[in-house]
Amino acid sequence: MLDYAVKTMCFDAACTKQLFSGRYYSIVLVTRGTARFHWEAERWICSTEDLFLFKPGEGAVMVFPGGKLPLEMLWVQLSPEALAALSDEATQLEASFNVVPFRRIAVRADSEISMLIKSLARRMVTLPQEHDSFASALFEESLLKMFVILVLRACIHAEQHRAQGSRKHLMMDELFVYIRTHITEEITLEQLEQAFYISRFHIAREFKRQTGQTLHSYIVKTKLDLCCHYIEQGRPITEVYRLGGFGGYNHFFRAFKQEYGMTPKQYFRSVQKDAHA
């Protein structure tokens, strides 16, 4: 019998949840909504169809700030023994997991692979109800094998895309570093134009083309993400917006409520409630 587990997780209200892999390889598939995953200084934002992976003995804290859309995720855990049973002489799946360069990583799968992964994961949820069906063990093994292979392919493809685009996106990488470094300050296109010796119009156009969002929207969301971190630490709201680089409380309040569907104080209360629970 293969040693694995599949769990469906649904959250309608803001919450914080500790995820730990134990002795398993863990794969979290976000099927609806957006969540933040963080561990020590590392942070990832995952939305619908994103994968989040971590290896045995590791974990992450999942933060769902609430909002208009609920959060739905599928959590698949596979033991080293299960991966060995699904492997063959040509492909050792556990070894492949350790070759793919991640400890904890968020992956955006190609649309075709993502659709297949989601379909397989949802099918895996219903497998326990089919033990009396024809060739159930063989069907289960085939389903799991296909799921793991597609997840690994998604990781490999993501790495290849990053390698192929590294030179093309060099300016963007430098731009992200600059924004992160100066996130607690007011960042304008004029500043970026002077810092990179590139037209502000070109910066704005390229940022929108390569990321799908405006530069202003990205900066505001990054500031809000930092503010959420300070709120989770228990800092006063009157201090949070200054630490996050917002010039005034009203601007911070409007941006926070528009992004998360709740006020900063409501978010603080939800974090406190989850911590006590």
Rank of each mutant, 00 (worst) to 15 (best):
I231S: 03
L215T: 00
K221W: 11
T31F: 10
F97Q: 08
A90K: 12
V240T: 07
S47Q: 13
D88V: 12
I203P: 06
M124A: 08
L116A: 13
I187T: 06
M124F: 04
R254V: 05
R200S: 15
H276R: 12
R205L: 10
Y25I: 07
K168L: 14
R153T: 11
K221C: 09
G245A: 10
D88G: 12
A121T: 03
I117H: 06
Y260H: 09
K221V: 11
M62R: 04
D132L: 12
Y260R: 10
L120I: 11
I105C: 02
V100I: 07
F268Y: 15
R242I: 15
L120Y: 14
Q233L: 13
V151K: 04
L53T: 01
S270Y: 00
F147K: 01
A41P: 04
A163T: 13
F102L: 09
A109H: 00
H161Y: 14
C15T: 13
F64Y: 15
D110H: 02
F20D: 12
M115N: 07
G261W: 03
I113Q: 04
E193N: 12
A60I: 06
S87N: 07
T184N: 14
H131P: 00
E141N: 02
S199T: 10
F176S: 00
K68V: 04
R122S: 10
H161I: 14
Q258D: 06
P80T: 05
E239Y: 04
P128T: 02
Q160V: 11
E40C: 01
L226M: 13
G247V: 03
Q210L: 15
A204R: 14
I237C: 10
N250S: 09
K68A: 10
F252I: 05
M262Y: 00
A121P: 05
F52Y: 08
F37S: 02
V177D: 04
Q266F: 12
G212E: 04
F196W: 03
T48I: 00
R103P: 00
K223V: 06
Q18R: 14
F246E: 01
S142Y: 09
M73R: 03
A60Q: 02
L175A: 00
R242S: 13
L19D: 12
D225E: 14
V30T: 13
T188H: 02
A90D: 14
V99Q: 03
T211M: 13
L226F: 05
A85L: 11
E239L: 12
A137R: 11
H157N: 11
Y197P: 00
D173L: 04
Q129W: 08
T34S: 06
Q191P: 10
H229C: 06
S199W: 05
L51W: 00
R104S: 07
Q258P: 00
L51R: 00
F102Q: 04
A85Q: 09
D12K: 08
C10E: 13
H216G: 12
L116I: 12
Y24R: 05
W39T: 05
F11K: 03
